[in-house]
Amino acid sequence: MKDTIEEKLKQITLKVTRKPDAEFSGQTTFQDLDADSMDKVQILIALEEEFGIEIPDEEIATIETMGEFVEYIQAKLSVKESGAQD
């Protein structure tokens, strides 16, 4: 699951930032990709659509690296799944 999330995040982020050949790893930051606030909102909306989750701005305000972002989405998805079982 983690790999799928990372792959999707990579696809979306590199597409929005128009950097198809940029290096992308868990340590990559938004700053490394020259992503500004408008890019970030586009990435969030694409992720929300992709995974069917809500990502409130305040929850990700302190996230810097892609690795942290993957963990955040993973946590969101597990909450969603456990919610679905209730």
Binding site: M38, V41, Q42, I45, E48, E49, E54
Partner: peptide
């Protein structure tokens, strides 16, 4: 409302 395309502003 949260799904509005941010690019529309620019």
């Amino acid at each position: 409302a949260n799904r509005v395309d941010p690019l529309v502003v620019s």
